[in-house]
Design a protein around this nucleic acid. Structure first.
Lengths: 344, 344
DNA sequence: CTGAAAGCGCTTACAG
DNA sequence: CTGAAAGCGCTTACAG
């Protein structure tokens, strides 16, 4: 059954179209559209369904389509990469991109209805803790949602775009092993974040298989931010037997770790190798430039936008979770362990 | 004469309102609104004027107000600070923020008319080379424009927001002089950029007055980007008598310079002090953290948004160029010159 | 809770 | 190039 063409007539739907399909008067449909109270719940639900099925847009017809991109946290190097991808994919079809910080101080339902009323074709939520209720409210308001790099493993009915985090962890481990490191550590992001867990498990399993397991004191989870990189980095460097190489859960964490090293006089990469994750602008710009597991953030943004537009057009989506490939980018922050470290 | 209330009736203007004021039929006004060709140029001009004076918005009335923020270049740490300020100021009045890369591949007029037709209340252009024609086209389309950190000195009829660049240059010079440096250099951004010139002149004049003028070989202008920081930095470090301290025209340039130092084994701040300009996230996050002249980018974004909304509401603006204060933030990239450098 | 009917804002084919 | 007139999509006060 193809629900996308299920009894929908060609041409823009008007109130009359919906009224006929619903077997009610135009006046009643108008009331539903305007959220008036004097409509029975049953009638309202049926009419709302039909409005959606017929892509009812109101007199204005379709204004310029607009997709809202929601960043819950502060804008950072990470968000820039994603936005560049989104903007690039939006340019050709002429879609407007709205930036927001998401629902703040209103109920999920009110927010979602506002988004729908403002005419957003879809919402892209980036790497944040969009609550279950918000996603549900959007769905009820008929606004498609695509999540980039979801913190929680993709729920059954949430469309998401991510990258091969587990494989990324493996490639970080293989790189550091190949340089000759045996005392390795993981300085991770949010303990609950699905992507963080995947990175860690990939890293861990590879090192275990190689006979150099990560000891419990050399694993720390915190947040994906710089401040945690400094704090967690200091903890790792203060260990009795500190690591000779650290895999960080994000570029920001890696930079914090490098700052912790500077404060202690630990040289990167001579005394400590550091591998980051993301490959944002930070990785190229910092000193030394960061060896990283690259996540194709721009492409993820582009894919998210194209997926959002397909959903907005009522098309079915093949896959509920698209996963793009990570790759290792070797720069100057990783090197073989110094001889003193290699020969304990 | 108060043109903002000049004969404008209260309540939303309709085609009938305009038709009456213009002394033409409703049909003619409708044609003008829809850009039809069968209207004489004189009638069209008069009706367009009246539409603007009456804030004609069409049936939909005023949708959610939306301001378009244009970044011509790549999104970077700089743009994030500005955007945070814009978003913050937009949250309370409930204004939507659209992000774009500006006019690409269309004529200024077509672009400006598209912006107007899409219902943008105003445009904020950030630190880019928005051509004279684009600004003029926007004005003709009746869309207010605010420029942040304009590259060219504020034109008579462009509203802009900036910071005290000249004073920033002075404070960088004073800071480095007070540390005991006498061999100083300027690694600047775009030679033509007004803000770059102001930074340089403030720096230069202070050093001249102190009896430690910047020699011509220690002044380089390029771009505001990282890549130039590396290239220009290498030129400065290769001088026969290299500087002991460098004032960089942006944070990105400063980071490039630090990378150039790393490649040559020059230590920051032991062998070379570096002062950046902007105080983006990069300055806090890099290693060593950057001493910078802080530009209040968030506040500049907020001020730009509020100004844009005032213009969109038809209010007059007190000042055509608002200038916010810079301040020195001392971190770890500046220190007294090493003894070998101090005693030549 | 529903809809017939009046009426608003707008568009457009067509006569002049 | 202009406008009278027909008509569309929508809303709403009101009768049932």
């Amino acid at each position: 059954m193809d629900s996308s063409t299920n009894g929908v007539k060609p041409g823009r739907a008007t109130l009359a179209t919906i009224a006929e399909a619903a077997g009610v008067s135009i006046a009643t449909v108008s009331k539903v559209v305007n959220g008036r109270q004097d409509v029975s719940p049953g009638t309202r639900a049926m009419v709302e369904d039909l409005l959606r099925q017929h892509y009812y847009t109101g007199r204005g017809g379709s204004r310029q389509p607009c997709v809202e991109v929601v960043f819950a946290g502060p804008l950072a190097a990470y968000s820039n990469e994603v936005m560049e991808g989104v903007l690039q994919a939006a340019a050709e079809p002429g879609v407007a991109i709205m930036l927001s910080k998401g629902r703040i101080g209103s109920t999920p339902t009110a927010w979602a209805l506002g988004v729908a009323k403002a005419g957003r074709s879809a919402v892209i939520s980036v790497s944040n803790e969009m609550a279950e209720e918000d996603a549900t409210a959007l769905a009820r308001a008929g606004v498609p949602l695509v999540v980039i790099d979801p913190l929680t493993p993709a729920g059954a009915d949430v469309i998401s775009v991510g990258s091969t985090n587990y494989f990324g962890g493996i490639s970080a481990a293989e790189h550091l092993l190949s340089l000759g490191h045996t005392r390795l550590a993981y300085l991770g992001g949010g303990a609950d974040a699905g992507c963080n867990q995947a990175r860690w498990q990939g890293f861990r399993s590879t090192l275990e298989a190689a006979g150099h397991p990560v000891t419990p004191d050399r694993v720390r989870h915190g947040t994906f931010r710089y401040a945690w990189g400094v704090a967690g980095g200091e903890q790792l460097l203060a260990l009795e037997s500190p690591p000779t190489a650290v895999f960080a859960g994000s570029d920001e964490i890696a930079l914090g770790l490098i700052e912790a090293c500077r404060r202690r006089g630990v040289r990167v990469p001579e005394d400590l190798s550091v591998v980051g994750f993301d490959d944002t602008q930070l990785a190229e710009i910092c000193s030394p430039p960061l060896t990283v597991v690259r996540q194709p953030l721009r492409e993820m943004g582009s894919v998210a936008l194209r997926t959002a537009l397909r959903l907005a057009a009522g098309a079915a989506v093949d896959s509920h979770h698209v996963e793009l490939a990570t790759s290792l980018v070797v720069r100057a922050s990783s090197a073989p362990p110094s001889s003193s470290a290699r020969v304990p």
